[in-house]
Amino acid sequence: MADDLPLRVLERLRAIDWSDDSAAYEHANSRALLMREYLRRAAGWARAYRAEESWPFFDITEHVAPEVRTPSDVAAELEAVLTGLAPSSLRKTCRGAVR
Rank of each mutant, 00 (worst) to 15 (best):
Glu26Phe: 07
Glu62Met: 02
Thr83Met: 10
Ile16Pro: 01
Glu67His: 11
His63Cys: 02
Tyr38Val: 03
Arg41Glu: 12
Ala23Leu: 12
Arg47Tyr: 11
Ala65His: 15
Ile60Phe: 04
Phe58Cys: 00
Arg50Glu: 12
Leu34Glu: 11
Ser89Asp: 12
Glu67Lys: 08
Val98Ala: 05
Arg31His: 14
Ala42Val: 03
Trp55Phe: 14
Leu13Thr: 02
Ala51Phe: 02
Arg50His: 11
Ala80Glu: 15
Asp21Asn: 08
Asp20Tyr: 05
Ser88Leu: 09
Thr61His: 05
Asp4Trp: 06
Glu62Gln: 09
Ser72Ile: 12
Glu37Thr: 14
Arg47Lys: 10
Leu90Ser: 02
Val74Glu: 07
Glu79Lys: 09
Ala43Gly: 06
Glu77Gln: 15
Arg36Lys: 13
Gly84His: 10
Ala51Asn: 05
Leu39Tyr: 06
Tyr38Glu: 05
Arg14Ala: 11
Ser22Pro: 00
Val64Cys: 02
Leu10Glu: 01
Asn29Val: 12
Gly44Met: 12
Arg31Asp: 03
Leu39Glu: 06
Arg41Phe: 08
Ala32Val: 04
Arg40Ile: 05
Ala24Trp: 14
Ser54Asp: 13
Leu34Ser: 08
Tyr38Gly: 02
Gly84Leu: 09
Leu85Lys: 13
Ala97Gly: 05
Asp17Met: 08
Arg99Leu: 05
Ala42Pro: 02
Glu67Arg: 11
Leu34Gln: 10
Gly44Phe: 03
Ser72Pro: 08
Asp3Gln: 15
Phe57Met: 07
Ser88Lys: 07
Leu78Lys: 02
Leu33Gln: 14
Glu11Lys: 15
Val64Gln: 07
Gly84Thr: 06
Leu7Tyr: 07
Val98Cys: 05
Ala46Leu: 06
Ala46Pro: 02
Ala51Glu: 03
Trp18His: 09
Val98Asp: 01
Arg8Leu: 11
Asp3Ile: 15
Leu33Gly: 05
Glu11Tyr: 10
Val98Leu: 04
Thr93Arg: 14
Leu5Pro: 01
Pro71Phe: 04
Val98Trp: 00
Ala28Val: 13
Ser88Asn: 04
Ile16Asp: 03
Pro56Asn: 10
Gly84Met: 09
Thr83Pro: 00
Trp18Thr: 04
Leu85Glu: 03
Pro56Met: 10
Trp18Lys: 04
Phe58Ala: 01
Ser89Ile: 04
Ile16Lys: 02
